[in-house]
Design a protein around this nucleic acid. Sequence first.
DNA 1: TAGCATTATCTGCCTCGGCAGCAATTGCCT
DNA 2: AGGCAATTGCTGCCGAGGCAGATAATGCTA
Lengths: 158, 158
Amino acid sequence: MSAAHYDIRSFSSGQSVGYLLKLAHALMHDAAAAAFEGHDVSFMQWLILVKLREGASTAGELCRIMWYDTGALTRLLDQLEERGLVERLRSVADRRVVNVRLTAAGRRKTSELMPLAIERLNAALADFSKAEFAQFMRLLKKFIATLQQAEQARTTVS
Amino acid sequence: MSAAHYDIRSFSSGQSVGYLLKLAHALMHDAAAAAFEGHDVSFMQWLILVKLREGASTAGELCRIMWYDTGALTRLLDQLEERGLVERLRSVADRRVVNVRLTAAGRRKTSELMPLAIERLNAALADFSKAEFAQFMRLLKKFIATLQQAEQARTTVS
DNA sequence: TAGCATTATCTGCCTCGGCAGCAATTGCCT
DNA sequence: AGGCAATTGCTGCCGAGGCAGATAATGCTA
């Protein structure tokens, strides 16, 4: 472990990872949300659809991987179910669990909107070389791993 | 400019910068908010105080640099003013403008809570070498710059 | 000076996520 | 089997932020 990166004397908010992450996320999210405007599925809803396509199968699982509230997800799934993009099936193995899966229409809608997201991601990274992109991803994952570990330690204590 | 980083065929949400930024920000924010729990100033409010100490002087300026809603900021300033941490002064040069500045108590409170934030930032970056930290900051800033440029182009058109 | 677009702030309304409590179900332990 | 903690999903409530319209003040143009 190296010495601390920040100290009280020299701290400036513009040099804070937290502040930069906030800005980067807000800008990226706004760009994505703007791209999805006018379509009948919001950006957040589409993210859920993608995660389902990638294998997520229950409500709780979606909440954990998306760092999303269970109450909020229940309501979000209600909407997706109403529009026939998703279906809920009570698990027979464990009747507390609700299995969620894409319908055919849901799968179609997911693919249909995919280009919107891809386009925005590439636009945001237009000035990044392959090497820079790889570095960026690696560092983000490392950062996340550290915090998730700390978070897990915090919640298992209490 | 290099070739596109993402394409429709190979896309996976776990490899999306947007998804990673969302997670990184959420985890960092939760850690910071948890650190400020119990103190009479929320994490968000403290951020405003810091920006004021660093020279921000009007409500509008705070909104722009923090990527924050003007309505939300008005209410947040109301609370800070009530507690005597901040004071509003109608500008004499332009009477539409409200100059905001820290009171002595506000400056004291800002410094008092600084260690909480520093500590969390350093904890999150504990495994980062100096070089990795510098790289991470550089790439985040580059990413932000690209998106801000695009955002500005989008809003000046309409 | 009169008219009009623009800017800065504030207010009300709406949506969405966080949180706490609830009901149903399961698994563990005796 | 019986009791009890833990887990899953759902519901009501609350607070915070986004958005649109209102207000006041300024600057530009004729």
